[in-house]
Design a protein around this nucleic acid. Structure first.
Lengths: 187, 187
DNA sequence: TTTTCCATGTAACTCGTTACATGATTTC
DNA sequence: GAAATCATGTAACGAGTTACATGGAAAA
């Protein structure tokens, strides 16, 4: 119900058509959430039949006709309900990248570090993108702010992991230097 | 492919049956990831047909017979491939709870704070659970460690949000005291 | 003139969950 | 004797994605 809450929240401030909603989310909120076009249209249709929103046709010049959606009183009630439920609850974020980290000791620490530096590049780009997103009014901005904080924390964590791996790699090199004829110890 | 990587990684250290795998993930890794029983069995069957793992029947006393899975050379190759892909890549974590936050200014700040304090209780419990999970050998422990760091950061963020809301609530009370006959200013 | 933008959608598919089913066995 | 544990599954459903389709208008 979180995506419905998002759409209702946006329509509450201003009536919009589907394309416009998707564009806004894709352009200004992409660092926090994402909503594909077919999903957006599907959810809007669902909310339309539920009576949460009402549509009206609109024509701008010779452009394709738009279905402009506005929130209804039932929609406002649903918004209030969903908002309270969302704020009072909490659901765990999942980090797919952690699963690899759990088995990183199956790899040579130097190679693992190299792979993770690639991850670090992506993270840096993401952080830059988050910092570059235009500012919004009110608490909508908190969404971006939280994301920036989170990404900065992720970068910190990744750096401590990299430091550990570099340390391990150094230890491997030293032990190789000490016993030059022996195999590298099993990791 | 992250769940496959998880299962392969666990089977690499020790051969296990489906129930045992699910139990381990549900008991020791629940703060980081989750894998429902039918999903586990489904993935194991899929990996079996793919030749990544091999099964053998095992009987322990008069208990139901188990299908014990062990990783095959093809499975090991897949593990190596998936691991490298996972480590080099990154995918954004999504925070459903943020969507509510984005529209928190639709509510009275005092009520919003009250709802978020409920969220805070859940977060605290989750953090305690993460800290209480048994320690594992090697980098598997990093999974837990990262989760603890993340949850602590989330708690911090929530507290700054609560501080802001309390501040807003105070401002509201002051303005009400100053103009006792007037309506509360629209938010 | 070819590409991109605007604006809508449909169909097929994947992934994962929920709910249910089985049957013996140990624990309360 | 009832309930929980062990160990396996199946069937149905739902949410969301990908890929595709349409067709005119503006931009390159």
């Amino acid at each position: 119900m979180d995506r419905e809450l998002l759409l209702l929240g946006l329509l509450r401030r201003q009536e919009m058509h589907g394309y416009q909603l998707h564009e806004f989310i894709d352009r200004d909120l992409t660092v926090c959430t994402d909503l594909k076009k077919p999903t957006a249209y599907f959810l809007l249709d669902k909310m339309l039949t539920a009576g949460w929103i009402a549509e009206k046709a609109e024509q701008a010049g010779h452009r394709p006709s738009r279905r402009v959606f506005a929130i209804t009183p039932e929609g406002e009630a649903a918004f209030q309900r969903l908002l309270r439920a969302n704020l009072a609850g909490w659901s765990r974020a999942h980090f797919p990248g952690d699963i690899g980290l759990a088995f990183v000791d199956a790899l040579d620490p130097a190679e693992a570090a190299q792979l993770l530096r690639h991850r670090r590049d992506i993270l840096m780009a993401e952080l830059a993108a988050a910092r570059a997103t235009p500012t919004h009014a009110g608490s909508l901005q908190w969404l971006i702010e939280h994301q920036v904080q989170h990404l900065a924390a992720e970068l910190d964590w990744l750096d401590t992991v990299l430091a550990r791996l570099d340390h391990q790699a150094q230890a491997t090199i030293r032990s190789q230097a000490r016993r030059p004829k022996q195999q590298v110890a099993a990791r």
